[in-house]
Amino acid sequence: MRLLNLAAFCFVITSALFLYGLNYETRRLEADVMAHERAVQKARSDISVLKAERGHLSRPERIDPLARRLGLAPPTIEQLPTSESLADLQDPAIHAPGR
């Protein structure tokens, strides 16, 4: 009977310690989850800012004059080959060895 009591007492102590540890572990994990959630939130916010910045930098209003300053322009019809002109094309490079 005494042995049984002792065993029960030990069990109570260990389970109390275990629960105590578990409680702390849970709190730590909760803090971890919150930190991660904050990081996700921050990353989302950063992504939206970066997306907006990319959109702002690549807006045609800005790219157009920059491209023109570099000598670029909308393609003209002379630059666009038609199927007939492609058929006529005899590119020697196609038949060059080592390709």
């Binding site: 916010s45 939206s48 800012v49 997306k51 907006a52 990319r54 959109g55």
Partner: peptide, 9 residues
């Protein structure tokens, strides 16, 4: 898919 409007914080 090019961005025209977005929400910012």
């Amino acid at each position: 898919g090019r961005l025209l409007a977005t929400d910012l914080e």
